[in-house]
């Protein structure tokens, strides 16, 4: 995920950088595409980054 300004073929835009967007971005990269992950706030992570633990295993969520 570089910052290159050139227009790329085989690119996808993902709107929203929460856990769903991040996972989709990783998967699209692994499937061989260039990804623009667009997030409105200053950092990706969404709500999951605010969670302390996750159900039901109470794993750390970060």
């Amino acid at each position: 995920m570089g910052k290159a300004m050139i227009q790329r073929e085989g690119a996808v835009m993902i709107l929203g950088g929460g856990i769903a967007g991040i996972q989709a971005a990783l998967d699209m990269t692994d499937l061989g595409y260039y990804v623009y992950l667009v997030e409105k706030s200053p950092a990706v992570g969404g709500v999951m980054a605010k969670l302390d633990k996750t159900f039901p295993t109470n794993d750390c969520s970060l």
Partner: peptide, 12 residues
């Protein structure tokens, strides 16, 4: 951005 597809994941 020139893109071929869009994935919407804006959360809740």
């Amino acid at each position: 951005l020139k893109v071929g597809a869009v994935i919407l994941s804006p959360g809740f």
